[in-house]
């Protein structure tokens, strides 16, 4: 197994603030890596730089053999990295199916001629899309598969999270970036969401995941390895137990000296 993602000295400055400070990080093929650290430590910035939302100030990132530093968000998605967002970013007035199909963009034909004139071919593609959406939801949360044509605004938070994760999964990415999937949910809901995720991953083949999470019980349960950030720098790395014992990590989280 080689590294799927390799970052060297990845840095992002916002004016005088160094949000990400020379981060070296590797993600191995097939692992679940937890990314933890106090608020403002640069976790989401790392996702945003990686997925092309902001360009990196310096440093580089390679995905497999491909250098993806400063790729556009579209190109990063095409390369096989999909993500969710900290704040739910579903299109609320659209149906769950439409939302899933946003994530399926790379498998769909967007030409004007195809969509307006070749309606039969379009219909077949829609049928395929519905099948894929139903299959994924069956695996993730069967009751949702029957609710494809409800607006996203009408489903509860936990289902929105599920749809967001499915939207990222439906394009069959090689790397999934999850930005605090438990935000705004109860402990119990988070546990159920994680169960669904692990189950789906087991059946989909060993998908590589980077997970940002504040809920330490989640990190302990699902991750193979953790990286701890503070002020944009990596301060510790290793299995959760080992990292949790680290004095630097305890200091960053609890302010103990």
């Amino acid at each position: 197994m080689g590294a799927l993602l390799r970052c060297n000295g990845l840095t992002r400055k916002f004016g005088g603030v160094v949000a990400l400070d020379g981060l070296d990080l590797q993600v191995e093929e097939g692992e679940i890596l937890g990314l933890i650290g106090p608020n403002g430590s640069g976790k989401t910035t790392f996702f945003n730089v990686l997925t092309g939302v902001f360009p990196a100030t310096s440093g580089e990132a390679r995905f497999g053999e491909m250098p993806i530093t400063n790729f556009s968000p579209q190109a990063v998605y095409q390369a096989g990295i999909a993500r969710t967002f900290q704040r739910s970013r579903l299109c609320l007035p659209l149906s769950l199916f439409d939302n899933l199909m946003v994530g399926n963009h790379k498998n769909l034909d967007h030409g004007l001629w195809f969509n307006v004139v070749r309606r039969r071919a379009l219909k077949r593609q829609i049928e395929e899309g519905r099948k894929a959406a139903r299959e994924l939801l069956e695996l993730f949360d069967p009751p949702l598969a029957g609710r494809l044509f409800e607006p996203a605004s009408r489903v509860p938070m936990i289902d929105r999270r599920r749809i967001e994760i499915c939207r990222a999964l439906i394009g069959k990415p090689r790397l999934l970036l999850l930005d605090e999937p438990s935000a705004g949910m109860t402990r119990d809901e988070t546990r159920r969401l994680m169960d669904d995720l692990l189950e789906a991953r087991r059946r989909l083949g060993r998908l590589t995941i980077v997970l940002i999470e504040h809920e330490m019980s989640v990190i302990e349960r699902v991750t193979d390895r953790c990286v701890v950030l503070n002020y944009g720098k990596k301060i510790a790395e290793g299995a959760y137990r080992q990292v949790a014992e680290d004095p630097l990590v305890r200091q960053a989280y609890l302010g103990l000296s």
Binding site: T51, G52, V53, S72, P73, Q74, V76, Y77, Q78, A82, R83, F85, R89, L90, C91, V102, G103, H105, K106, R167, G171
Partner: peptide, 9 residues
Amino acid sequence: TSAAAFGIP
């Protein structure tokens, strides 16, 4: 932002 993250030009 999310449209771009899923490849929409």
